[in-house]
Design a protein around this nucleic acid. Structure first.
Lengths: 344, 344
DNA sequence: CTGAAAGCGCTAACAT
DNA sequence: ATGTTAGCGCTTTCAG
């Protein structure tokens, strides 16, 4: 079963010790800088490490209870601009601290989450970054008891004890819909995100709030689920367009589903934005490059990743630090997919 | 799973052994399925693992010489669509095999490469995927001696002993330039990539070959370095446009630098593609979304990632398997940035 | 088949 | 200040 080719003569702390003529514990001391070591010995050790090309064994170190300089990152998927941009932000901060990243993709399978978290917290990682966790309540409790540093990104709803980084979802939608109303739209469709995601709820709340504040009658047939996917957006749009009184504008809870909405509208032969206005949420890179460019509510993805990592480092330094919740501001990015309402 | 067990009390193999009334070695046996174990014991062990919520400790396992189900991935950076798309492909294959990914970003610092590789090969990873390594010759030799499974992505030039996955760089450029020539262009600028990257060399070779084959005179002032960056592309374009006889079309060695070329041309008040034709290479997601959409040579990024992972798994299964070099076909994607040459 | 015992490379007491 | 000694959790002989 086990590879017969396994035995590689990796340089260990003991090899270094032998060459430097000291005990391996002393080598460990200079590596970790834990105790004073005589200058000449330190010198010899450093030299030996260099000559031998010593690279510490992460697993052994972590097993023995040392620091790892690795943070675990749990994401639902990758490749869509959303996750990618956040990872970029995280990576920027991590490399500034000389940390590395262990990436786990759950592919939205919720059963994987607790297992990965458990695995990561067994020593591999010094801290955890959870992006859009599906059902974190189960293991978060355990993390807190362990005082294991973690920060949740873009998911705020499940408890009041976790440090989180997110965006002003409610206000973002509020601003976006306000703009649509200013353009003269009154029947505005809303393609919602997954129910169990707190950001979905917040965005929907923003939609309701602004209609209410503006005294526009609320019609729940105008709210259809889109599940944050392109296909979901497509189907949602079809459903909306099939209404006896279809909306003149559609707000999609994220950019990806907005793309689906656009596809569906076009499939009906509609022209955007002349026949229908469409707005997204996120401002993933694609949003700006497509034609017509997507008007959307910008979520500062890179900054969110970076801030989350920054916050995590604070916890790693000071595990008993106070819980923090950071809400970064969204911003309406007006591009080309929304136009003034014109009655036909 | 019962909730009366305290979560996160780091259940070990010994705890399981105790509960099941066997030795921890036997537990290890059923975990790894390495020897026959009496059915009743196996039953009790499985049950205990489940009840206690046992999750194997990766570090310990790897230290002790076991399999890890992790592959290491070394990338120069992330966030640009190029790396992201390849990672996506890798991830797709990995999760099909139930493997996880340890991601290292070198941020183009070449000194990091050998250290990361060394670290990963010390047991953490079962195999290595190297994306665009800068200077792999040093450590590749060691990997091969250890028979450590690895696959290099998009870098073929450094030796003849490594398994690689790449694209038909030379042919891709050949096709692209041929198209430009068909459009009537005769003076075609070439914004090259980093000298030390083999794909740069291949792409440049394609450029030279087609000019030669078509009997078009070769002018080396038309070749300027762009370094695969947007800024590099910008500067290169400025340089090209400042020529006494500037080109009527510019081929950029990758899409990102093509973006810079476009920026620079526009800064000169030029209109694309009316005043100048521009072509890129890669077809990263942005290329299709921008306006005008970029005509480019498509490199099957997702497939490259996926195939590389697939190939890596073959090596993990069969470490002495033959070296393989896979060249995936590029494809000219005609969009909107190239037009027929018109003399003014 | 299965238990006992020996490490993997490292950190952290515990003695000096 | 530094060597000695225990493990961390696991895999893998080696005896039964």
């Amino acid at each position: 079963m086990l590879s017969d080719d396994k035995p590689f003569s990796n340089v260990t702390i003991k090899d270094v010790a032998k060459v430097a003529g000291v005990s391996h514990a002393t080598v460990s001391r200079v590596i970790n800088n834990t105790t004073k070591v005589a200058d000449d010995k330190r010198e010899r050790i450093l030299d030996a490490m260099d000559r031998l090309g010593y690279v510490p064994n992460m697993q052994a170190r972590s097993l023995a209870g040392g620091r790892t300089k690795v943070i675990g990152l749990l994401v639902p998927d990758i490749g869509n601009g959303y996750t990618g941009t956040i990872i970029e932000g995280i990576d920027a901060e991590l490399s500034a601290h000389d940390y590395d990243m262990m990436l786990y993709t759950t592919h939205h399978r919720k059963v994987k989450e607790p297992i990965y978290v458990q695995s990561l917290t067994q020593g591999m990682a010094a801290g955890l970054l959870l992006l859009l966790p599906v059902d974190p309540s189960a293991y978060l409790e355990g993390l807190r008891r362990k005082k294991f540093p973690y920060v949740v990104i873009d998911h705020q709803g499940f408890d009041n004890f976790s440090s989180t980084v997110g965006a002003t979802n409610r206000q973002g939608v509020y601003d976006g819909i306000t703009y649509l109303i200013e353009l003269g739209h009154r029947r505005i469709g809303f393609v919602s995100g997954p129910d169990m995601m707190s950001c979905s709820m917040e965005r929907l709340a923003g939609y309701r709030a602004v209609l209410n504040d503006q005294g526009i009658s609320y019609d729940d047939r105008l709210i259809v689920p889109g599940n944050h996917t392109q296909l979901g957006g497509y189907k949602a749009c079809v459903q909306l367009l099939d209404l006896e009184k279809p909306p003149s504008a559609i707000f999609a809870a994220n950019d990806v589903s907005a793309f689906g909405v656009i596809d569906a509208a076009r499939a009906r032969g509609m022209h955007i934005p002349d026949d229908i206005s469409i707005m997204g949420f996120d401002d993933i890179p694609q949003a700006g490059w497509m034609t017509p460019a997507l008007t959307t509510v910008r979520q500062p993805l890179f900054a969110m990743g970076r801030q989350a990592a920054k916050m995590l480092f604070e916890f790693i330094e000071e595990p008993k630090g106070p819980m923090r919740r950071l809400q970064l501001s969204t911003e309406l990015v007006i591009r080309e997919t929304c136009a003034r309402f014109k009655d036909i």
